[in-house]
Design a protein around this nucleic acid. Structure first.
Length: 204
DNA sequence: TGCCAGGCCCTCTTTAGGGCCTT
């Protein structure tokens, strides 16, 4: 069963998009992902994609992805077909996963594909594990945990790499804190959804 | 014209409201 797999064998992904809501017509403009097997990076995926309309100046400034860069990029449908093949039957992780899950579902719906995998949210876990962090934005958590980064933010591959390092850091911290050797993906999902008052019961 | 999401979580809560996160 997929959920019995170890939490350190997942695909960590991040979308850059034209806005916040596919229901309002927003589309993906970049996908980045890191494949982890037993805590090691074994593959990357990164691709710009042309949403079929110009992105706003806010998005150009926020992501450093310009309309000129997108003009020659392949369309979303072609990129997402390749990405669906890349994720296969892996479990998935993203920071604020509800956002990326909405776009993944919407973009795969357009090409008649589906993902069967489970999704876990690194932000929900960080809120429980690092309750004293200044906040739980990805960039803040990377600094808070002294996680290596190259200074690039709000690009899909860079953010997915940082999220992957944060994910593995949280797994290590949970292992040390609760004295366990291996954490199933399903237990991380349970941790993410458990009320803070009860989180110590999840790994005991 | 003006507006525009949504799930989670906390509290001055649960017959609600608002901040946090993502682009």
């Amino acid at each position: 069963m997929i959920n019995s797999r170890s939490a350190d064998s997942v695909i960590v992904l991040d979308f850059e998009t034209t806005g916040l809501s596919p229901a309002q017509g927003d589309r993906a403009i970049e996908i980045g992902a890191v494949k982890l097997e037993h805590g090691q990076v074994v593959a990357h995926f990164q691709q710009l994609m042309n949403p079929g309309f110009r992105v706003s100046s806010f998005i150009e400034n926020y992501t450093s992805i310009s309309n000129n860069m997108l003009r020659t990029a392949p369309c979303c449908e072609d990129v997402m077909a390749d990405f669906a093949d890349f994720i296969g039957d892996a479990n998935l992780v993203a920071h604020n996963a509800s956002f990326d899950q909405r776009f993944l579902t919407a973009e795969l719906d357009i090409i008649g594909r589906q993902y069967r995998e489970q999704f876990a949210c690194s932000m929900l876990i960080a809120r429980r594990l690092y309750q004293h962090a200044p906040n739980h934005k990805l960039g803040t958590l990377v600094e808070y945990k002294h996680i290596h980064h190259d200074g690039v933010f709000h690009r899909a591959l860079a953010d997915s790499e940082m999220t992957a390092r944060l994910w593995l850091t949280m797994i290590d911290d949970i292992k040390h804190q609760y004295g366990i050797n291996d954490i199933p993906f399903s237990l991380m999902q349970k941790f993410a959804k458990t009320p803070k008052a009860n989180i110590n019961k999840v790994f005991c």
